[in-house]
Nucleic acid binder design. Structure first.
Lengths: 150, 150
DNA sequence: ATTTAAATTAGAAAATAAATCTATTTAAAT
DNA sequence: ATTTAAATAGATTTATTTTCTAATTTAAAT
């Protein structure tokens, strides 16, 4: 992983529709050299996947909520059961098990407050073993990137 | 935006390396039809961009921290200045302005606790107008997707 | 400094895919 | 029924990716 790879990863993380030819110009390499470097990064699992990112606001997912959640108990059974169920909820884009005052931080994307209420009442709080939840609402997006500086 | 578009968006959000031919098979359409639908979704801004997602753990970014942060005051000047500076920090992948007990939730990715300490001391806490911070550490990733169910 | 092996790179050729074009179909409105 | 606009299919052109071979570079050992 040299400086060229880092630059290449930067470019791939930003836009995968650039042709290998375009990348080769930016990196001062031949097309083949770039091609082989990309394949290597893929083989090594550093590049995980190529995806399209959507504009939340154009698909009625502009209402973002961070939900801090506690379980009733921290038994393996309760944890496993909760985690197994929460991943199935489409509104939950992210769920991290965390240290501290609560057990999980969830990022939830829905259309508006009404839809959030509906989600809470009919989906989230029907999961078993939930002790308490605390919702924090996004009022502005300052930074939101998938790009790591390697 | 019909059912085919929704299915197409699902596929694009999961893997953009599928050829239009492969997509056309999955969607029971001709290559051209798929091609035109993709271009339309791009024109409308529903598809925002195409990116490569990296494996955090392979690039020394496996230590994830959620930092809850308060400003000293909520003046426009303090807010603007903080937001202008925080976006420049490469370790901060996400920063959301939120309602509630604190003002911002940050997602920070670094190598380990040592690097996090270094980041806090030399970068984050040197920003102006910060009142307090509270760090919560990820101990497990239950779900982490960029895929919206449209 | 020289040798050696491995990795990387370049350029050309082949294979594959994207983009364009024309004609046809479909669905909605009149 | 007829018109219109949008969506689709198939064929063609254009562009890109992938493979192949050979040359070059790099790093380690002598």
């Amino acid at each position: 992983m040299d400086a060229i790879d880092k630059k290449l990863l930067q470019l791939l993380q930003t836009d995968t529709k650039k042709t290998t030819k375009e990348l080769s110009v930016k990196l001062n390499l031949s097309v083949t050299a770039v091609y082989e470097r990309i394949k290597k990064l893929e083989r090594e699992g550093i590049v995980d996947k190529y995806v399209a990112l959507l504009n939340r606001n154009k698909i009625n997912k502009g209402f973002v909520v961070f939900c801090h959640l506690k379980l009733l108990q921290h038994t393996k059974e309760f944890i496993n059961q909760f985690e197994k169920e929460v991943v199935k909820l489409n509104e939950v884009l992210e769920c991290f098990h965390v240290s501290g005052d609560y057990d999980y931080i969830l990022k939830i994307c829905v259309k508006d407050m009404e839809e959030y209420r509906e989600f809470m009442v009919t989906k989230l709080t029907t999961l078993q073993h939930i002790g308490s939840t605390h919702s924090t609402f996004m009022i502005g997006e300052v930074k939101n990137t998938t790009v790591f500086t390697v």
